[in-house]
Computed example of a mutant assay.
Amino acid sequence: MGHPRLWLFLLLALTVGASAQGVIRPGEVWKDDQGRQIQAHGGGILKQGKTFYWFGEEREQGRDTSKKYVGCYSSKDLVHWKFRKLIAFADPENFGAHWILERPKVYFNAKTKKFVMYMHIDGPERPGGPGYGLARVGIAVSDKVDGDYTYVKSFRPLGHESRDIGQFVDDDGTAYLITEDRPFGFRIEKLTDDFMGIEKQMTLIPMHMEGGALVHYKGLYYAVGSALTGWNANPNKYATATSLEGPWSEFKDIAPPETKTYGSQSTLLLKIVGTKTTSVIFMGDVWKAKTLWDSRYLWMPVEIGDGVLKLPEPKPWTIDVKTGVTKVLP
Rank of each mutant, 00 (worst) to 15 (best):
A90G: 09
Y107C: 08
H80P: 06
G197T: 05
K113L: 14
K82I: 14
H160R: 13
V152D: 11
F168G: 01
D146M: 12
M196S: 06
H80Y: 12
T174S: 05
V145R: 08
T179D: 05
D122E: 03
D170M: 00
I139H: 13
K68T: 08
R136T: 07
N109L: 07
F155W: 11
F168Y: 06
T179S: 03
V70N: 07
R84A: 11
E93Y: 11
K113N: 13
T179L: 00
R63Y: 05
F168P: 05
T174E: 02
A175G: 07
I188T: 07
G173M: 00
G123S: 03
S154K: 04
G129K: 00
W81I: 01
H98S: 15
M202R: 10
D194F: 00
F95V: 05
F89I: 03
Y73V: 01
R103H: 00
F108G: 05
P127Y: 00
R163N: 01
V145S: 02
S162F: 02
F155C: 03
A88M: 06
V169F: 06
C72Y: 14
D193K: 15
K114R: 10
N109I: 09
D171I: 07
L101W: 10
A175L: 11
A90C: 12
I139D: 05
P104I: 07
D91N: 12
F184W: 15
P183I: 03
K111W: 12
R84K: 15
I121G: 09
Y118Q: 05
E180S: 11
V169K: 07
A90R: 10
G166D: 03
M196P: 08
D143G: 04
K105W: 00
A88N: 03
G129C: 04
D164V: 04
Y176N: 01
L177V: 04
E102R: 13
G173Q: 03
P127S: 00
F168E: 02
V70I: 05
D77Y: 01
Y118N: 06
K85P: 09
S66Y: 11
F95Y: 09
K200H: 12
G173Y: 05
V79Y: 01
G131K: 15
K67A: 15
G62I: 08
D143Q: 04
R136V: 02
R187E: 03
G133C: 01
I198S: 08
A88C: 08
K67E: 14
R126T: 14
Y149L: 04
Y132H: 14
G185W: 00
N94S: 14
H120R: 05
D146Y: 13
